[in-house]
Every structure is written in C-alpha cells, then in structure tokens.
Design a protein around this nucleic acid. Structure first.
Lengths: 164, 164
DNA sequence: CCGATTTACTCGACGCGTAAACTATTGATG
DNA sequence: CATCAATAGTTTACGCGTCGAGTAAATCGG
C-alpha cells in the first residue's frame, strides 16, 4: 500500500525504479500539496508567497535590508527582486531607502501597513500549520525533521557551517 | 539543536513558533534544494521539469492521452497545458492527434524523438536520485516515505471530498 | 583626475502556474 | 430539428523564477 498510493496519484505504469525515486516523488508531491494551501492562505490576505516571505524577512530582521541581502535569503535569483519590491511598494507594504554610505545600495524597509498585513496572517498561518501536519505525533514530527535535515545534509554537508 | 541550522539558513530572528512550523519550513527548504538539481539536470537535456513530466506520463501510459488527462496527473491547472504542449510540439517531442470519436478531444502522443530524449535522461536521473538521498539508510527512506504519506493523508483523507 | 573594473541593481524575454473568459463540439431536451 | 448545458481545449492576463544584458555608483590603476 505504501507504493500503490502515489503510483495511482501520479499515474505511473510500473513500480518505482528505486526507493530513492519513490522517496523523491513523495517529497515533491507532498510539497506541491502543501504549497497549494499556503498560496490560498496568502492570497486571502492579498499576498503571494514571495511577497509574504520578503515581508517576513524584513520583520524578522527588524531593520531595512539591501535588495541583494533579501535575494540571498530567498534562494531566489537576483533580478526577480526588483519586480517583487515594485509590487510591494505599490501596495504600500514596503518602501525603498537610498543608502547614505554607499549610494549604490537601496535599502528596503517594511512599512506600518506591511507590519499590519503580516500580523493579520500570523494566526491563520499558525492554524494552517497545525491543520497540515498537526496530526503527526510529536515524535513523528521530530523524526521527519531529522530525516529531512539528513536528506539535505547529503548535498551541502561540508558547506553547511560556512553560514550563508 | 536541530532548530539552529534551519533558522540560520532562513535568517529568522527568534525560535520557531511551533514544531509544525519547523517541520514545514524544513520540507519547503528541502524541496527547493532538490528542485534546483532536477531543473539543472533536465535543462542539460533541453527540457524543463514540466516538459519532462509530460513526456514521462506519456511514456508510462504507452498511448496518446487527452490534454485534460495529462493536466489531471500533473496537478497543474488546465490552461497551462496548452502552452506546454505547444512547446513540446515545436520541439518535435510530441504530436497532437484529433480524436475520431469525439472531435473535441485532442490526444497527445509522444514521438520517437520524445522517446529518445527521455531515454537520455533516464540514467543521469537515476544517478541524481542516488546522489540526493542515497545516503539515507533503506530503513530511513521507508520511514521518510511513510511520514510524508501520513502528512499528506491528513489533508486528503477525510476532507478530500469537501474540497473548499 | 581619467578610464577601467567591480558592485548593486534594473530591464527584457521566456517558461510556467493560476484564474477568468472564450470557442468548439457533444449530448440532452424541447 | 432547435436549443441549451456540459465538456475539451484555448486565449488572455498577471505574478514570479530564471537568464542575459544593461545602467549607475563606488573603487582602483595610471
């Protein structure tokens, strides 16, 4: 039954080539389903996931950040940032500040409206978190976290500690 | 200790709100890192992930499929299919066949070139699968699969039909 | 001080996911 | 047969990730 379910969902013909493949397809599939829920929630609050992430980073940092700093934390490639900031600025949720020391840098700051928008998302988001994975036992959650971290460590193990 | 690492990567300020949040962020983050590798591999073969998935579905099924049938297996919303098929057709990897019985239906068939393109990806993809998660013990892989399925089942299971 | 390089960011183009509205064909109903 | 609803697929519009190329400000060699 472990393999029958995903195979049916994806519409594959034969068995999985390997347990690695089954695992990765499960991971991708799970992500997709979760993502759909997050997208919906953010949309209800007039935000996209990318916009939410930027606001979240700015709030977390507590000070304006350069565009490139934001980009590096998003794992997103640089050029996309401009448009994202454009839209957030048009929504009045962030503002651009030109740097004094280095005038090449443009700092992005979250506005009051941005803070409020974010605050409105906090509680529904917590509820969604519980809805999505709250049915896993605490021990299962820890184990899942451990396995995911181990999976990721396989790739960047040696590089993990060179912090950013 | 398991929480220090992701927090540093994402650039969060405080601790996680909950283990649910930590779990979900780990999942999203893991997916992103894996996805980067898949995208690269497919690009080396002149394909995008979406294009690969369509070819894979067609090969797996072994017969032409209607557009909507493909869309339903991709978890992708319908309209995107048109453009995907357009590009695959332009690349000569699939072709459209008008249905005899029902002339509304357009069947999509994989071509010889499509089969060959796909065959060229098979082995590198298997290698990538092993590289990405091959360092997990077989037991860990099974457990991870089980936990991911359980995580997904929380959503699908009872609530699948009331589909908000 | 002038020109070349570097840094930080922007612009244009393409692929794709999503939603809303449209066309074409089919099947049911009168 | 005429018409209307449902179905298959497309078009259009927008947001976003990605790539390649471009611009403005700082920095460095002369």
């Amino acid at each position: 039954m472990g393999e029958g379910r995903l195979r049916k969902e994806i519409g594959k013909r034969g068995a999985f080539d390997s347990s690695e493949e089954e695992l990765l397809l499960n991971l991708l599939r799970t992500h997709d389903q979760l993502q759909i829920r997050f997208v919906r929630l953010f949309r209800e609050h007039g935000l996209t996931p990318a916009q939410y992430n930027i606001l979240r980073i700015l709030r977390g940092e507590g000070r304006p950040l350069p565009c490139l700093e934001i980009a590096s934390r998003l794992l997103t490639i640089v050029p996309g940032i401009t448009g994202l900031i454009d839209r957030l600025e048009a929504l009045g949720l962030v503002m651009r500040l030109r740097g004094d020391a280095d005038r090449r840098v443009i700092y992005v700051a979250i506005t009051e409206a941005g803070q409020e928008r974010l605050a409105g998302v906090d509680e529904p988001l917590r509820r969604l978190h519980r809805e999505l994975v709250g049915h896993l036992e605490p021990g299962e959650q820890r184990e899942l976290i451990r396995l995911l971290e181990k999976a990721r460590a396989g790739r960047d193990a040696g590089a993990a500690d060179h912090d950013e």
